[in-house]
Structure formats: structure tokens, C-alpha cells
Design a protein around this nucleic acid. Structure first.
Length: 683
DNA sequence: GCAAGGTC
């Protein structure tokens, strides 16, 4: 007679077993799955860790053929659960057969409860009368675990129901709309066009920004600067107070009539304290990693590896407050062993007080991302070291004192007799006075600006006046880090999925580069959805889903009625999509066509397009006037080809960008005989 | 071959 504990992952199973065991914990493998065996209060306990969800939802097999099933049919098809972790399920059933009690010990959240209930249902297939309980803990600490197991609760059926609702809604929206527009655009097989509750609003954000940029008309403006000299012979640049002159004439008039003497009208220096950064959540970690050149999914992959190595804590967290149970000093003492970072840890240890910063979001499931072991640079791959160093430096910074900065502003009036007035100039800047946490963490740190020491009523000489012509700039494209922050703000995705949602946009060919640029295909898909299935491009769908799931959790709404709302919305949308199939097809196919145009033919001026040879299956660039014009260029056969609307400065042939998985993207002139190739080959 | 969510 045993008790069986089921946790969400192997690591948690190990921890729970070690905490609850009276004596030693032994491990046996069943179907390759570790089972932890120990005694707790004279009872035999077995503990198994899952791998997250062990079942997935899908439509029955007979609906698998996209061409033979009308997408609208899928709306009312029963959704079935399919095992995805067969050896774990076998282990569960074997262990549960003779158990007297099952304790679900998955993470205490919606998905965790669902994972637990799925496991229980599999267990009940072999042992229907077993008693089932829930251990409710919010962190894997000794205290929490022991308390949870001496106060076992019932399964939170409604919480799991909310999770199932989320699964069903995601499946029907995703599958039905993915099939609808893929069929309309005749993009089948691995070319299908993905649509989903999270990915489509995310794509829409990127596309909306690109449209703003395209609609943006940049305006020329002028700025005036002047080089001044102090009595001590120091020189400095200051800018005219008018930030933008829209008329060149007016700016020129000032520049050519600027007087020779300036009077300092005010000089202020102010000190301000800059607080250290808050502890790393997944989002702030990915945002910072992105700023030093890591893609979100690469940074996440490396962080998961470091976690497995025991060097950093669990990387999927929303929490930004270190729990009081975390022994910060102990971590610092351990970090001293690192050859490269040990000295910095020692510096923090030497402080009188070690008071950590805290962020706005506080959850108790996992601590913010922090180092859990010391490492040396030579033990890690270069990329791993960069990420490890980032986590360590962030951790040290959160424990360090504020930095103090001095900012200075000087205002100068230049008397201009020729204009019969004076012109105002200013300069401002700041510098670090006391480094504080900046000693440990200089990611994104601004360069110090040197402001000359000037006092009110000082006289300065004007050495030169400068007219700079500029243009207003369109709003910036989203980098992956910024996009992840935006997704979090809008409630799109979770800490564990956002990076993969973004990665998916690249895989689908909807975006390229970082900062992210939507492809013509991505723009066409987003536009089609916006016109015909607006709901799925809107973050509001997720916001509403969250509200409904809260109601289900509280027992105030039923799964079926909530899913039915989505079914009704989809019926209308699919009907519209079917009616407008020709337009939808046209719009997306135009996008695809547009994406294949790489530029103009230098011989005849017609379009040059990427073509795939029917005979050799190889791709090449050919002129649209073929056979009248026989211009062709060969193409590399690997990687994605992105038209960039630029022509080669040297030979006039179009340039393209090639994005492949292994190499970094590169820009290439299509002309193999272009003289620029020779110089670049030498260099 | 569809989604998003866990985890590896």
C-alpha cells in the first residue's frame, strides 16, 4: 500500500521527495521515468514528475484532411484528448494501481491544476476508487511543502475546467482560422498560414508599426549648433534652444548673423540618485538580453541550459521580489569562487547593509532569476557566459547602493547685432559621480558627458556656428525585447511562451530581422485577418478569455457556455471568410507575389522576381518580360530571400537579404560579376 | 500539416 505523489516536473519530484523523506530517497526508473521512493511517517511514498502537459487536445483523426473537411464543420466537432507522454502515463498507471492515495503536487495555477487532473483521469482508468488530494504550495521550500502536505486539499475542479476551456478555445480559433485562410490562399503542407489567439495580435502589432512607418512622411528640419570657447581656452558645443527650425531660411539667417560673444544666463548643477534595477523576471531578462544581441528564444534556450547546470534559478518567472527565504549572503559567498565575478561579489558582501530592490510584480511560485552557483568563463561557451554574467551582474546590482549622478545645464545668450536680438543656446548632460550599482551592471549605461564649469554672467566666445540639416524619423520598429514587454503589458502569452510565439512568426515567414520587419506575406495575413476576422487580431479576445476563466474558476460560469460564445463568433467569421474567399485569396496571393519581387530589371525596367524552376526545382531571379527579356540571376539555394528594395551602388543590380538558420543574415548584390564582389572577396 | 500551454 503506497501513496503516490505527482508533480509537474522531475526536478520538483526530486525536491519534494527530499523534503518529505524521513530517511533516504531511492530512485528507480520505470519506462525510463524516474520514480522517487521514500518513507514518510511510516508510509511508503512514491513520487513521479511529469513533463508539463501529458495530453493534448485535438479533433478526431477523421478530420485531419484539410481539403476534405470544411473548416466550418470543425466548430461543432467534439474535442478529444490525446496522450503525448506515453511512457509517463504508463509509469503513472503502474505506480497508481496499488496506491491508496494520490496527491497532486503540480504548480498551483490554472495549467498546473489541468495537468494534475489529466494525470488523475489517466490514473482512474486503472484504479477508479483511489482517494485523490491536492497539495497546495506556492514555492518549493521546505516550509511550504511540509505545510501543504499536512493540510491536503481537494482537487480544484473548477480551476482545471478553466484550463480546459482555454485549451478548447485556442484549438478552435487556431485550427479553424488557420485552415480557412490557408485553404483560401492555397498554402497547404508546411506552407500553411498560422493564425491564433496570441500570435495574430502579436503579428498585428508589428504590422501596424510598419504601416505607420510607410505612411510616415519625413519632414526636413534644421538645427543650429555653435562652438564656444571659455576664457580658460576650453571649447564646447551648444545647441540653439529652438529644437527644430522648419524653415531653412530662418535658420540660415541666424547662423550667418550669429554674434561673437555669449553671456551665460544660468548654470545649474543638480545631483540625483539613480536606484539600482529590480530583480529579473523572464520579461526583463529577455528585454536586456535582447539589447545585447540575443534573440528571445536563444536567450531562453541558454538560460534553460544554465538552469539545468545548476548555475541560475528557474528562468520562467513573473516575480520581481526576492522572497525572504532566499539567502542572499549565501549566494554571494558562493559567487566569490568565480574567477571573473568573484571580486564583485566580495564587494557587495563588504557593504554595511545588503538590501535588495523589489519590483512591482510579486508572486510566490518562483524567486526572480538569480545565480545559484559560481562559474568561470572558461567552463562555459561564450554565449552561455554572456548570459550567466548578465544574470550575476543583475543580481549584484539589485543588492548594491544607488548611483549618484550630476546633471548640468547651461544657458547662453548670444548677442547678434545684425539681427538686433539675442539668440538662446543651451547644453546639458549628466555624468556619474558615485557609481554605486553601476560598478556591477553597465548594460545600457550612457556615456558621461563633460559639461564645462561655467557660472552665471561668464562671457564665452563664439568660435563657429553650424547648421545641421535633418529629417523627422518614423516610429522605430519593434525589437524582440520591446515586443515581449508589449505582449506582457497586453496580457498576450505567458512567461513560458512569449519567446516561442515570436519565434513562430519568423518560422512562418511573417517577419524577418531584428528589429522585426514584417514580410509582404505577414502584412497580407494581418490585413486579411483585420478585415475579416478582427477578433483574432485583438488582444481583447485574450482579456475576455481571462475574465471568463476567472468566472469558471469561481463556479459562476460553465465551460460549455463560454466555449459556445467562441463557437458562435467563429460561425459568423467563417461564413464571411467563405463569402469573400476570392478577395481573401487575392489579397494573400498578392502579398506573396509582392514578396517575390526583388527589384527592377536593369535591361528592360520590368519586375525581377524569384522563380522556382519546374525542371530543376532550383530557384533563381528572372525578368517578368521573359521571353522578350532574358535577364536572370542565380540565387543561393538555402535560407530565406528577403527583397530589400535597394540597388547595388556599383553595378545597379538589385540587392537582396539572405536569412538562414546557421549564418547571420547578409546582404548581397545579385550580379555575380559585380566589381564590388572582388573587393569584398579581398577584404 | 492546424493553437497555446506546460516542460526538456
Amino acid at each position: 500500500m503506497i501513496k503516490l505523489i505527482v508533480s509537474e516536473k522531475d526536478n520538483a519530484a526530486k525536491r519534494i521527495s527530499n523534503i518529505l523523506a524521513d530517511g533516504k530517497v531511492t530512485v528507480k526508473k520505470s519506462y525510463g521515468v524516474p520514480v522517487y521512493i521514500f518513507q514518510n511517517k511510516q508510509e511508503d511514498v512514491h513520487c513521479v514528475g511529469l513533463k508539463g502537459h501529458i495530453l493534448k487536445v485535438d479533433f478526431p483523426e477523421k478530420y485531419n484532411n484539410w481539403q476534405k473537411v470544411e473548416p466550418i464543420e470543425l466548430i461543432d466537432v467534439e474535442i478529444v484528448k490525446i496522450p503525448t507522454q506515453k511512457s509517463i502515463i504508463k509509469t503513472l498507471q503502474k505506480e497508481a494501481k496499488d496506491a491508496v492515495q494520490i496527491v497532486i503536487a503540480t504548480d498551483f495555477d490554472r495549467e498546473g491544476e489541468l495537468i494534475g487532473v489529466d494525470a488523475l483521469n489517466k490514473i482512474k482508468e486503472v484504479n477508479s476508487r483511489v482517494e485523490t488530494k491536492r497539495a497546495h504550495f506556492s514555492a518549493l521550500t521546505e516550509d511550504e511543502i511540509k505545510k501543504a502536505f499536512s493540510n491536503l486539499e481537494d482537487i480544484h475542479v473548477n480551476l482545471a475546467k478553466a484550463g480546459e476551456t482555454r485549451q478548447d478555445i485556442d484549438l478552435i480559433w487556431g485550427a479553424i482560422l488557420t485552415r480557412s485562410i490557408s485553404l483560401a490562399a492555397k498554402r497547404l503542407g508546411k506552407q500553411f498560414l498560422g493564425v491564433g489567439r496570441v500570435q495574430s495580435p502579436t503579428l498585428a502589432i508589428v504590422v501596424a508599426r510598419e504601416k505607420e512607418r510607410r505612411a510616415f512622411i519625413s519632414k526636413p528640419y534644421w538645427q543650429i549648433k555653435a562652438l564656444f570657447g571659455t576664457e580658460q581656452g576650453k571649447e564646447f558645443l551648444a545647441q540653439h534652444k529652438t529644437d527644430k527650425f522648419w524653415e531653412e531660411k530662418a535658420a540660415k539667417k541666424i547662423v550667418s548673423n550669429l554674434g561673437k560673444i555669449g553671456l551665460v544666463t544660468s548654470s545649474k548643477r543638480t545631483k540625483k540618485m539613480v536606484s539600482p534595477p529590480t530583480p529579473f523576471s523572464t520579461t526583463s531578462f529577455l528585454a536586456t538580453a535582447s539589447s545585447i544581441g540575443f534573440s528571445a528564444s536563444n536567450a531562453m534556450r541558454i538560460a534553460e541550459g544554465l538552469y539545468m547546470e545548476g548555475l541560475i534559478s528557474y528562468p520562467r518567472v513573473d516575480n520581481t521580489v526576492y522572497p525572504s527565504s532566499l539567502n542572499l549572503r549565501e549566494i554571494l559567498v558562493d559567487l566569490k569562487k568565480s574567477k571573473e565575478l568573484g571580486n564583485l561579489a566580495a564587494l557587495v558582501l563588504a557593504q554595511d547593509k545588503i538590501v535588495p530592490t523589489r519590483g512591482k510584480k510579486k508572486t510566490t511560485d518562483h524567486p526572480p532569476i538569480h545565480p545559484t552557483g559560481a562559474a568561470n568563463e572558461k567552463d562555459l561557451k561564450p554565449q552561455e557566459w554572456k548570459i550567466y554574467e548578465l544574470v550575476v551582474r543583475r543580481f549584484l546590482a539589485t543588492l548594491a547602493p544607488s548611483a549618484s549622478m550630476e546633471s548640468a545645464r547651461v544657458d547662453i545668450n548670444v548677442e547678434c547685432p545684425a539681427l538686433k536680438r539675442s539668440e538662446p543656446f543651451f547644453l546639458q548632460g549628466s555624468r556619474v559621480v558615485d557609481e554605486g550599482w553601476l560598478k556591477f551592471y553597465s548594460y545600457g549605461r550612457k556615456k558621461d558627458e563633460d559639461i564645462p564649469n561655467l557660472n552665471e554672467d561668464d562671457i564665452v566666445s563664439v568660435k563657429k556656428s553650424i547648421l545641421e540639416s535633418k529629417e523627422t524619423q518614423p516610429p522605430k520598429r519593434y525589437g524582440q525585447g520591446r515586443l515581449i514587454q508589449e505582449m506582457e503589458k497586453l496580457g498576450l502569452g505567458t512567461k513560458s511562451t512569449r519567446h516561442s510565439i515570436i519565434q513562430n512568426l519568423y518560422f512562418r515567414g511573417y517577419v524577418h530581422s531584428d528589429p522585426m520587419i514584417p514580410t509582404e506575406l505577414g502584412i497580407a495575413v494581418a490585413e486579411t485577418l483585420r478585415k475579416n476576422a478582427e477578433a483574432v487580431t485583438n488582444p481583447e479576445l485574450t482579456a475576455q478569455l481571462e475574465k471568463d476563466m476567472d468566472l469558471i474558476t469561481e463556479g459562476k460560469a460553465e465551460k460549455d457556455s463560454v466555449v459556445d460564445i467562441s463557437r458562435d463568433m467563429l460561425r459568423d467569421i467563417v461564413k464571411v471568410l467563405k463569402e469573400r474567399e476570392a478577395e481573401v485569396s487575392q489579397e494573400i496571393r498578392n502579398g506573396i507575389k509582392e514578396g517575390k519581387i526583388v527589384g527592377k530589371c536593369p535591361k528592360c525596367g520590368n519586375e525581377l522576381r524569384i522563380i522556382r524552376s519546374k525542371k530543376t526545382k532550383k530557384r533563381f531571379v528572372g525578368c517578368a518580360s521573359y521571353p522578350d527579356c532574358k535577364t536572370t540571376y542565380s540565387l543561393p539555394q538555402f535560407g530565406d530571400i528577403i527583397p530589400i528594395n535597394e540597388t547595388c551602388e556599383v553595378c545597379g543590380a538589385p540587392k537582396i537579404k539572405i536569412v538562414s538558420r546557421k549564418k547571420r543574415p547578409w546582404i548581397l548584390c545579385l550580379n555575380l560579376d559585380c566589381p564590388s564582389k572582388k573587393t569584398s572577396a579581398e577584404s
